[in-house]
Simulated scan of single mutants.
Amino acid sequence: MRNSRRLLLSIHDVSPRFSAPVETLAGILAEEVGAGRFAMLVVPDFWNEAPLLADRAFVARLRSWAALGVEMFVHGWCHRDESRHRGAIARVKARHMTAGEGEFLGLSREEAMERMRRGRDVVEQAIGRPVAGFIAPAWLYGPGAIEAAGALGFDLAEDHMKVWSPARSRVLARGPVVTWASRTPMRAASSIAFAALARRTLGPMATVRIALHPGDVSDPRLIESARRTIRRLARGRAIARYRDLIDAGGENPRHL
């Protein structure tokens, strides 16, 4: 890729549970940057109530997006935090950084590996090709999850502040992800304010990430903010794939 400045775009919580808003978000990204030029984070069985392979129509839609070039990531197993957290830091993250959805924050290495394996199998059955990598729900990983992702050889992962390769134990890009929140009016307002700040300050960064969630479509202000942010941060940047970071060697790659 000639342009070393990149914009990475993704849709989270891709599941039959949210088929309509995911379709809407995919259409918005196709309008803004072109069809297939983004990633999808696929949940195999959202909250253990929406098994992916049971919905043939949604599986067919996933395959069509994958055929267009959409990168498909495993996004946990059920997206629901079922752990009892040990340690003050983990409890604070679980309580304040997500609404009970940090599934991989408190898992042991063995349990994380089992869920990752099952998740990879399901998503790969659905899309008919290998997944791009693994991204934990709410971008929250405990030590067990980080070890498990490396042991299973996932090429790509990300959290709030970086993209890395678990298989290579190397950081590929650093910097915050721009995202929106719709759970409460206060969270929506603060995420719109952060996006406005990001439009002004993230321009010099080599790699910028933007993530959308199904809940964003519930508030026209969030969608308008997202469109403005994509347009602003796309200036002078290549609309990239996560895989491009590996192919280019990453930004000053270093061991984790």
Rank of each mutant, 00 (worst) to 15 (best):
S4N: 11
R5Y: 13
L8E: 06
L8G: 07
L9V: 03
S10M: 07
I11A: 04
V14T: 11
V14W: 07
E23A: 14
T24C: 08
I28C: 11
V33R: 01
V33K: 01
F38R: 03
F38L: 02
D45C: 12
F46C: 11
N48G: 11
P51T: 03
L52Q: 07
L52N: 04
R56G: 15
R56L: 15
A57H: 09
R63M: 02
W65Q: 10
A66S: 11
G69M: 03
V70F: 06
M72C: 15
V74I: 14
W77E: 04
R80E: 12
D81I: 07
E82P: 04
R84I: 15
R86E: 15
G87M: 06
A99W: 15
G102K: 03
L107A: 00
E114Q: 14
E114L: 13
M116Y: 03
R120N: 04
Q125L: 12
I135K: 00
L140H: 06
G144D: 05
G144R: 00
E147F: 04
A148C: 05
L152Y: 00
L152P: 03
F154I: 03
A157Y: 11
E158K: 10
H160G: 07
H160W: 13
W164H: 11
L172Y: 05
W180R: 00
A181E: 13
M186L: 14
M186P: 00
A188R: 15
F194H: 11
A196D: 12
L202V: 05
M205F: 13
R209K: 07
R209G: 06
D216R: 03
R221V: 01
S225P: 02
R231W: 02
A234S: 12
R235C: 01
R237E: 01
R237H: 02
I239S: 01
Y242H: 10
R243Y: 10
N252L: 15
